[in-house]
Amino acid sequence: MHAELISNRHFGPYAHLTFSAPALARRAKPGQFVEIRLTGGNAPFWRRPFSICRAGSGRVEFLIKARGRGSQLLAQAAPKTMVDMVGPLGNGFTLAGKQPRLLVGGGYGIAPMLFLAQQLRAKNIPVEVFIGGRCGDDLLLRREMKLTGARVTCSTEDGSYGHTGRVTEPLEARLKQAKAPVRIAACGPHAMLKAVTRLAAHYRAEAEVSLEEVMACGLGVCNGCVVKIKGEYQRVCKDGPVFQAKDVDWHA
């Protein structure tokens, strides 16, 4: 389906894009993604998958980082640009259960967490968000997160903002003092997700992670984006992108 870009806010290598896409906005669930085709031509050849950052009122938002040709093109797109979208795709985060949620986002991995925080807060579930980045410029969606009513803790590796160190350090401190069961949802770099999985196992918390892979089809037909889940290959696009953290084989 076609979608029109309404606004594109840049900050450094990041861009926050809002599209008008009513049908998609109605069906989207936190953790799902959309395959976007930017041009009618052959470069880039594939669509690009992006996590839905927020959806509602006929609009769908994405928070992206310009990395390769595809994401660069999208990050530079001007309002009124028409793109072609396929989605929403994949399975989202678990919304059921009243346990307080700890949402962990590293860099642009925070993107799906805003949508998730919003829907959890709408159900009156307590939400704490742990945002991490290399420096203060990598801490994204702080203001939007606070507006959902979530408690926000920031960490930077260079100490330029918030806690100095990795995002998993304040997460561990929180897990240490947890009196009731909590549930974790995380998205970000591989090493961060691995660390979150280890912490969740140690503190006996349920955890879900959203994985990223290069995708050819995004529809579950090509088997190109597989990861080892409980010893067997599963497709990130169709069986994921959200998986139970304990099921992921991080060494595969």
């Binding site: 052959n42 470069a43 050849f45 594939w46 290069v214 050819a216 190109g224 597989v226």
Partner: peptide, 8 residues
């Protein structure tokens, strides 16, 4: 298992 290339 998959990689893009020019027009394919």
């Amino acid at each position: 298992r998959v990689v893009e290339c020019a027009s394919g």
